[in-house]
Design a protein around this nucleic acid. Structure first.
Lengths: 211, 211
DNA sequence: CTGCCCATGTAAATCGTTACATGATTAC
DNA sequence: GTAATCATGTAACGATTTACATGGGCAG
C-alpha cells in the first residue's frame, strides 16, 4: 500500500500527471520511494476508481495528459495512513549474506565488494545531500508550494520534518561508508601473506630473463 | 534469487531439512534474511530439480523428513553468486514517507512514530547483538561447524567476516536509535504551545454546565 | 527526417505474503 | 486427551520488474 500513499502524499502538495509522477518517483521522491511508470499508471487508475484522486484531461499544451488531484476523501485517507503505525519490512540484505559466505574467496574479491558498497552509499549520500540542501536553503520547489498554503507558525515543523528525514538518511549513508572503510582497514591488517589464493601475482608469475 | 542463495549458503555449512531451514529463516539466518516456510519448501524442490541440492529421506527419529545437502554443482553456483556484484534494492522507506507527510499531525502523533522507530531498532539491535556475541565468543553452533572443516589460518578471516557483518548491523541500529532520540529532542525544543491541534483538549471540549 | 523527450499504457513473469490444510509425535 | 511442536505443503493474492507497444511534439 505504500506506493499508493506515496502518490497521494505527492499529490497532497501539488496536482500532477502520471508522467510527472513517474519522473518524480525515479528522481526526487525516488530518494525515499522508487517506482516505475508501469507501476504508477495502473495505480492512478485504481486511485481514481476509489475516488481518492480525480483526473482532468489537460490539453492546453497540445499534449493529451491527465492531471490528477487529491479529493477530500483522498486527503482523509492519506492523513490516516501517515499517522498509522508503520510496518517495518522483513530484514533482507543480500550484500550481508554475500559477505558472510565470502570466506572462501580471495582478499581482493572481498575488497572489491567493500569498495562497491562504499561507492553505492556515496551515490546515495549525494542524492540525499542535494535533497537536504534544497530543503534547508528554501529552493526545493514542492516544499515552497507546501509552505505557501500553511500558516507561518507551522513552517518550522514542516521544514524540520523534511530536514530530519534527509539528515537521517545522510547519517545512514555516512555510516555505511565508514563501516566499509573500517572493514577495508581490518582486511588490510590481516596477515597479508597467508593463504593468498589472491590471484596469480608476481610471485606466481616471475619474469624469466634469459641471460 | 537471494532466497535461493541464502538457502545454499546455509546448506554449505550443514545439511538441513525444510523445517530446520524455515526455523532458521525466522530466527538465526533471519537476522539477515527472513523467509517463511511457504517460500522455502517450493524453493527446495526447485533447487533439487536443478541438482544444486540433494534430498535424502530421513526416518531415524520416526518422522518423515527430507534432509538436503549441497551438491558440488551447488557449491560452485553459491561461490559464483557470493562473489558477483550485489544489486542493491531500490530505495523504499515507508516510515520516512510518513514522517515527511506527518506535518499536519499533532506533536504527540509524531512523537509516537519516533518512539516506535526507536523501539523497532532496539529489538533489531538485541537480535544482532546476540548473533554477534555468539560469533566472537565461539558459541555460535554453525560457525563452529564451518571452522571445523577449514584450516586454522583461515579462521581469523572466517570469524572476522561474520563479526564485521553483525557489527555493521549493530551500528545501523544504534544510529537509528540515536537519530530517533535527536529528533525527539528537536521536537521538544520547538515552541510547545504553538498550534497544538494536539488532540481535542479541554479547550475544544468545554464542559457545558446548565445553571 | 531522425532522434529524443513527452505521455500512456499492457503482458508476462517473479517474488513474497497470507491463509489454509494435513498428519504425526511429544509433553503435560 | 489436548496442546504444542514437528513436518510439509497448496492456493490466492499482492507487489514489483522487465519487456514491449504506441503515438505525438520538438529540436537539430
Amino acid at each position: 500500500m505504500s506506493l499508493r500513499f506515496s502518490i497521494l502524499g505527492f499529490l497532497s502538495t501539488t496536482p500532477a500527471s502520471g508522467y510527472d509522477l513517474s519522473r518524480q518517483f525515479s528522481q526526487g521522491v525516488g530518494a525515499l520511494w522508487e517506482a516505475s511508470a508501469s507501476q504508477i499508471y495502473p495505480e492512478l487508475r485504481e486511485l481514481e476508481r476509489l475516488r481518492l484522486i480525480e483526473g482532468e484531461l489537460y490539453t492546453a499544451d497540445r499534449l493529451n495528459k491527465r492531471i490528477y488531484r487529491l479529493t477530500e476523501e483522498g486527503k482523509r485517507e492519506l492523513q490516516q495512513w501517515v499517522e498509522a503505525d508503520n510496518e517495518y519490512p522483513p530484514e533482507r540484505d543480500a550484500e550481508r549474506i554475500r559477505l558472510i559466505f565470502l570466506d572462501k574467496s580471495s582478499r581482493e574479491t572481498i575488497r572489491r565488494h567493500l569498495i562497491r558498497h562504499r561507492e553505492h552509499y556515496e551515490r546515495r549520500l549525494s542524492i540525499w545531500q542535494s535533497q537536504h540542501d534544497g530543503i534547508v536553503d528554501g529552493t526545493h520547489p514542492r516544499l515552497k508550494e507546501r509552505l505557501a498554503e500553511r500558516s507561518s507558525e507551522e513552517h518550522e515543523l514542516i521544514v524540520g520534518l523534511k530536514r530530519v528525514v534527509f539528515e537521517g538518511n545522510m547519517r545512514r549513508a555516512e555510516l555505511e561508508i565508514q563501516w566499509a572503510n573500517d572493514t577495508l582497514n581490518w582486511l588490510e591488517s590481516l596477515g597479508a601473506e597467508k593463504f593468498s589464493h589472491d590471484e596469480p601475482t608476481s610471485v606466481e608469475q616471475p619474469i624469466k630473463r634469459v641471460g
